[in-house]
Each structure stands twice: as structure tokens, then as C-alpha cells.
Amino acid sequence: MKILVPLKRVADPDNANKVKVNAGKIETTGLEWKPNPFDEYAVETALRLTENGANPKARLGEVVVVTFGPKETESTLRQALATGADKAIRIDATDDQLDGDVVARALKALVEKEKPDVVLAGKQAVDGDSNQVGQLLAEYLGWPQATFAGSIKSEDDKSLLVGREVDGGTINVRVGLPAVVSVDLRIVAPTSVSSKHSPAHKYPEGVRFAALMAIMAAKKKPLTEMKLADLVSDAALKITYTGFELPPARKAGIKVASVPELVEKLKSEAKVL
């Protein structure tokens, strides 16, 4: 099975409360970049689907990672290569040339060249929180989609049984390949992903880390560059941000000393009881 995984680098989400707005723009200088966590889960999922968990060094499929950005975003790709992805593509672009729609249209053109069986995407990037590229891409390709996947079982690499985490429960769907799947965080639980190669392997919780040797070896894996214009002829953006602002600050709270005091405050001050 061949899987394409789009990756985005984002400002370190663990420092998201340090987001600054300067003259209506998000201040990105000084922020540390990290791969979008949901995209890391997608890479982990793709690797699990293309290996036997008991012998992960032997690749039993192909994982291609792709990102959009300037040269420096290649480090995001190299990290994915170091954890096991087989090949990487960087589509040269600057942030102001991109929105979710352009990315989806460019990915469509890339899918037509690369011909993966599955596109595995994170359900959303934790900077824009848009949750759209997988669905847009599926429609542009005329493929089915399975969003918010918390579990995936590959059925002989012809179809996927996907547990979709939705409001109030889990919807199980079977999607015939090729298809687009977007993953949620429980996809990296120990037994969330299984395939014919690895029907019952129990993984450690979370995503794998690259060994030092693998980081060195990743430098020799293929990484190619393409131009955005090679993939999309119409570069028009569909969304324009006119400004950003910080949320209104919450009124500073107080500490109460006891449960009776808490109840008294809720009753007479907040008036919520």
C-alpha cells in the first residue's frame, strides 16, 4: 500500500498561550516550529499500516510525506523520514501563497502524479484549526473520506474499516480505496491500527521517535522539490484574514478557602445556582 501524508509545521502548540498579536498579525518570530501533532499521528498511522509491528525495519509499503513551505520546512520532512517515511516532497511556497483550498488543489495534482492508495492527513492543524484539507481534497479527487479516525483496520489493503470519533459516539465505516482519511488523537493508541502485515501488534502509546542512526540515514532518503505553480494553475486564495486579535482576557478569578465559601459565591455572586 502506498500512502501520502501531508505535513504542516506549526508554532509549538505547547506554547500556544504565548501567541502574540502585533498590529493585527500573528507574531511568529521567536516561536519554535514543530510538526503539527495531528500530522505526526498521521505519519505514525501510515507507518503502522505499511509494516509488521514486530519487525518495523522491513518496509512493506511506501509512505510519502509532503509539505508546503520555504526551504527551512525541509527539517519537518527530514524528521518524518527519520521515523520511517520513505520519500519526501517539498512544495516551495510562502505562507501568504497558501490557504486550505490551494493546498487541497495542489495535493490533488500531486495525488494524480504519485497515485497513492490512501491520503492520511491530520484532522486539523493546531494553528489555523480549520479542519478542512482532507475533506476538500477528497471532494476534488472524487474520493470517499473518513474524517476523525480513531481506529483503522486495513482489510487486505483494498478497504479500510475506520472508527470515526463523532459527537456522541463512534461511527464505523468501510471505505473502498483509494480514499482520504483524517486522523484524531486516539489513532496512536497501542492497538488502534491493524493490517494484514500486523494484525495484532501492540504498539507503545503515541508516536515513535527517531533513533540517532535513523536521523543520519534520513539524510540520504529522497527529498524532492516542486513549485506550487507546477501543481496549481490558479493561485487565487479563497480566504483573506484581515486581522488577528487576542481573546478578551478573563476577569481574574479568586481562590476560595472552603467548599461552603465556594457554594456561597456561586449562589450570591455568580448567581449560577
Binding site: I26, D129, I239, T240, Y241, E245, P247
Partner: peptide, 14 residues
């Protein structure tokens, strides 16, 4: 809301 609600963006569609 963007950045997990740590900022808000105003946007228009073209």
C-alpha cells in the same frame, strides 16, 4: 478562533 482559541482571526471569503 485560531491557535486553540488563543487568538481570533477576522476573515472574508473571496
Amino acid at each position: 478562533p485560531v491557535f486553540a482559541g488563543n487568538a481570533y482571526g477576522n476573515c472574508t471569503l473571496n
